[in-house]
Every structure is written in C-alpha cells, then in structure tokens.
Design a protein around this nucleic acid. Sequence first.
DNA 1: TTGCGGTAAGTAAGTACTTACTTTTAAAAT
DNA 2: ATTTTAAAAGTAAGTACTTACTTACCGCAA
Lengths: 267, 267
Amino acid sequence: MTRQPDKAGATPAAQIPAPAAAGRMAGGDRRRQIVDVAMRLFSERGFRGTTTKEIATAAGVSEAIIFRHFATKEDLYTAIIDHKACSGEMADMEQPVAEAIRCSVAEHMSAKDDRAVFAHIALHMMQHHERDTEFLRLLFYSALEGHQLSRMFWERNVRTLYEFLGSYIRERQRDGAFRGADPLVVVRAFAGMIIHHSVTNTLWDKSRSLLNIPNEEAAREFTEILLRGIDAGPAKAAPARAGRADVAAIARASATSRRAPRAKKGK
Amino acid sequence: MTRQPDKAGATPAAQIPAPAAAGRMAGGDRRRQIVDVAMRLFSERGFRGTTTKEIATAAGVSEAIIFRHFATKEDLYTAIIDHKACSGEMADMEQPVAEAIRCSVAEHMSAKDDRAVFAHIALHMMQHHERDTEFLRLLFYSALEGHQLSRMFWERNVRTLYEFLGSYIRERQRDGAFRGADPLVVVRAFAGMIIHHSVTNTLWDKSRSLLNIPNEEAAREFTEILLRGIDAGPAKAAPARAGRADVAAIARASATSRRAPRAKKGK
DNA sequence: TTGCGGTAAGTAAGTACTTACTTTTAAAAT
DNA sequence: ATTTTAAAAGTAAGTACTTACTTACCGCAA
C-alpha cells in the first residue's frame, strides 16, 4: 500500500471553500474577517484539526498576514472568544439567556404564567442553537479539546440559567404551584430535553430521520412534560414505591461488579 | 517572541502516561493493546489530535510496530469500532440498551411497572456513561470529526432505544395510562435528561460544582418528572392555553428577523 | 533457518511561525 | 496640488520541527 500523493483522504471537503475578499482591506476589517473564517473552520474541524494555512487560504490571504494580526494560533482562539463575548451591542454569548429574559419572559414570570415562561425559554434556546450551529460545534470542540471557551460559556451562561430558572422554580414551589423537588435537578431535566434535542439535530441526526418536529412543537411538548412533571397536583402520592427500592437495589448490585474489564495495565 | 524549544505549549499533559508493557508480546495481544491505547488517546485528544508517535510511546513500542499491525491510522480507528462492536461476548456498543432490556427491565415492562422501567433504564445509562467516560468522549469526537463510529452507534443503539421505549409508551397510551403525545418526543425528552446529565458531568462540570447528585437520585427524579409529565391523569385539561398561542406568536416574530448578522460574504 | 516481534533511521509532505522584501494608502510637508 | 513619508497591507520563500508512513536490518524461539 504505497503512499497516496494527496494525503487528505480523511476529509478532502471544504478545502477551497471561499477565496473570499480580493483586494486590500483595512486592518480592522481584515482582522474581523480572519476571526470569522477561523471560527467557521474551528467549528468544522476543531482547533487542532485546522491549519493556519487553511485559514489563510479560506480568508484569501497569505499565511503571514494571519501572524501579523495574531501572534499565535492560540491567540486567534482567544480573539474568537472576545468576538463572541463582546461584539458590539449584541453579546452573542449572553444572548440565549439574557435576551430571553428581557424579551417578555420576565413579564410572564411576574404573571406566573408557567407555560409561557418555560415554553419561551425552550423555544428561544432551540432557535438560537438552530441558527448558530457553528457555535454549538465550537462549544463541543472546545469542551473536548479543553479550551477556555467552554468554561467561559459555562460560567457566564449555563450558571446564569440555572440560577435564574432555579429561583423561579423555588418561588413557585413556595406558592404551592410546584411540588417539592430539587430545583437544580428540575432545571437540568428541562435544559437536558432542549439541549439534547438541539445537539441531536446538529450533530447526530442532521437529516431528522428519527424525529422531525418544528421547534415550537418541541418546546410546547417539553414544557408540558416538565410542568406536569413538577405540578403540585391534588396531593397525589407516588403510586408505586417499588420503583424506588428497586433502583437502589440494582445500583448496589452493579456497583460491586465494576472492576471487570478495564483492570489490566498498571496505572 | 522567539520559538520555544519544546513547542508543545498547547497540551503538555499526558505525554508519557504509561510506557506500559516491557517485553515481547504475542501478536494478537499487542494488537489489542494498541487498540486499547489508541482508544484512550483518541478519546482524550481526538483522532486528528493524536499522533501515531504518541500512541506508540504510550503503548511502549516503536512507531513502526503500529504500522505493522495497522496499515493506516484510519485503520486503527475502524479497529476500535470492530473492537467495540463485537469484542467477544459482551458487545460494548449494544450494552446500554440490550443489557438493560435483558436485565429485569423486560419483566417490569410486562408487569407495567412504569417507574421501575424508566428508572432502570435511566440508571443503567448513567452508570454506563460514568464508567465509560472514554467512550462518551470518543462518540462526541467522532460526531464532530465525522467518523463512522458515531453513525454506527446512532443506528445500532439510539434507534433501538427510540423504537423500544417508543413502542412501550404507545402500549401504555393504549392502556390509557399515558396521555396522548408523540412517543418519540417523549423518548427524546427522557433521553435528553439522562444524556445531557451524563454529558454535563463528563464534559462540562466534572467537579459537579453546579449540581452534585448520585445517579440513583437523578434517575428517580427524571423518571418522576417524565411519568408525571405524561400521566393520563384524571382528564385534566391544560390550564393555561395562553402559553401555546404565545409560543407560536414569538416563533413567527423571530422568524422574520432571522437574516440580520450572518449576511455578509457570499457562501 | 525461518518466521515473527521488534527497532533505528529514514522520507516526503505538512505545520506553526519568520524574515526580508514590495505595494498601497493616507496624511503631513512642501 | 504635488511630493514626501511612513505606517500598514501584502507576499514569497524560508526555518525548525512534526507527522504519517517506510525501509532495512536485528535477535530469538520453534
């Protein structure tokens, strides 16, 4: 098996996607364009999987000008973070939560219209994910590759969402509208439905071959499940206590048989 | 900024993690060991981010040995898939669903003990994810990098889960135990809670700083939310119809203002 | 003695980053 | 209005090193 001349057998696609801008550009514009191109490529192939040459070609310039604008490839990444964190007036990274809050969710909250509150948040998140697939992929690559972006997003966004929704749930629990349950677990359940749905759609089932529903329907159904799920109801006790005991039982059982396959090499 | 002598400033960790086996090995053993090591490294740094040199060093052999066993790096990846798909009697890739089905879930199903059914599946999946973090990361890298592994897993595992749980839900709907709702959406909601919880724990919040609960508790609460969420109940109509109409409204509203930022460069 | 597990030392094509040099542009000096 | 100037935009061709993969050659047990 002799070596093939073009070694890019792995991913030959997206090689010369857009020679882009032709003429000379003002410094700031070029810089922004490079960040834009880099973001796209990093989201497609990851930080390690993207070469500075590819970025240069896609931006329609020589490699050297990338290093005129950014000292290192690493710096390009942090530039992306800055760009996302504070690009003008619409900070992308705070959009999903912050905008949702501002945009009418707050009033629904004071009106205690639970369905409207949760459905709005769900729909907003889904629409955001659908529109900015690039960013979702970037986030996952970032988490896997251990870059700052994911940590920053987690602290700024996810934490905020948990606190925000969590405190609303606590309030409604005090109202007697929701049953007693750890609000953070409830938020995780809700966020899980939404985010997993988005991730599935953008990462695994792009063709929607398994499940193809419009965002509004998904948001409505997820909200319905969650709200019925945490509804205080007419003091209805959990019918089957067997389930609980049983879960604990199999937990114990399989905890013992943990060390079976992976014990082979020291350390 | 002069070039540093060791350029590995990006990720200096895990460079010489395990020189591993010393002496000569039988062909088959060595092969399996290499696959094992490669799997670990691919899950940590991705396919593109892992060099054959690193794999060789971690396996305690020279690089040439790797290419004696596997024609290309790509081949190593497919070997991982084969290893996962049909390693002896316990096919790892079919474990989460298939084993859960065999192991007592089936009886709970025929007994129509919904809580036991869902809690068992949830707990089983979570435990599997927790034990095999490596595989979870591998799956995500695979999805992002566009390798076969993720597609194969999706077809073999996720599809099965959806069909399996979906048909049970349909059955219970016919029984009048569950309210009418798209079973696939319900499965997505449930799987979302579980998988997002696992993914969060292994990818984003490893320290559990946001939410730290044992798997059994998470499984129990997620099950509770889902089952109450789809319970047929005493024919209780959805209280606030406002939520539904409203969701459709904001969907329409934001659909118009879609093309704002990303319209700049042609393709 | 031969087949197999193993290695040292390549090789060609990347890979991040530099250097030395040319062109464009826009404002200050004439 | 023209010339000067100088900063900034740009390039071609490196540099030092990595990377996937090869070749030629060991040593040892059956």
